[in-house]
Amino acid sequence: MGAVILAGAQRFEPTIGAALAALGIDGTVAIVTAGWQERESEDEELAAHLDGRTVNLRLHHRADLVFAADAEFRAAHHERQRLLRFKQDFYRIRLEHELEANHVIRQRTAPDDILAEEERASLNAIRILDDYHLAQCARIHREFEEAHAPLENPYVAAQRVQIAEVLAGAQALAIAGGHVASLLNRMRLFGVAELLTGQTVVAWSAGAMAIGTRVVLFHDEPPQGAGASEILDAGLGLVDGVVPFPQPETRLRLDDPERVGVLAGRFAPALCLALPARSTVLLEDGQVTQCDGALRLSPDGSVAPLVADTPTREAGR
């Protein structure tokens, strides 16, 4: 596994070009913009930022070709997505109640030891629910894969050969943000992670979220409601032990220790990283080796600049 760069939003002040250059990467960069969905091919700005050395893998388009060619596979794929949506909905119903219980417990007055015990128990209940949801998602994926062997589907396989050829000639893979579920879905459909052969991966916003072990959806200030962060699914696992939170400027209340503490506590011992615009984090061999602008969220509710040499492995989880 090559180095991985996680980055904040790139839309207005892109930094990935400099980050790749710092690693000596001056060759072809394969790009994934499947998170942009139908506008996947509108990658001119990104290509210009990377000096025109890009080749877009066009995963969204390739998926459309597969679905157009194989209606049965398309229907099965849609059915899996439908099942996942049902599961997400039920998970969310339970999760909102668990988070509400945690909030209520934290407001109570009680002897310190009892309060601490009950807070831990409440947080553990949330973690159990998160794990249950991940297991449910994994089961649905497994059943789909056993029934339909997507990587052996001839239309998928044909596209995969082309993707592998592009990757073989690339020094790096750049994964853009956008719709994280769509991005994750397309990357999983073509098994892109398994086609990597040591290329450096640079991923930002939804891209950074998709390559972790768990994809966590979040927004502390949605148009209504308390904003319950929720697990979408397992990620691609290109980085272990990191949960990225891009766009913290507009999505996270970093000045609220309770919210930060619950968020980081839920996913501990994973490293919870807020990735503001312009921030970059270089990960090599399970270690943060360079970082600029990223923030570490801790279970005690604190927020601090991330420092180099921080380990990322999820020991004991």
């Binding site: 839309r11 998170g35 956008g178 579920a181 916003s205 939804a206 148009p223 209504q224 929720e230």
Partner: peptide, 14 residues
């Protein structure tokens, strides 16, 4: 409307 029909706000991270 945003409670009944939540948009992709939670899904899109540009």
């Amino acid at each position: 409307l945003s409670w009944l029909l939540p948009g992709p706000l939670m899904m899109i991270y540009e």
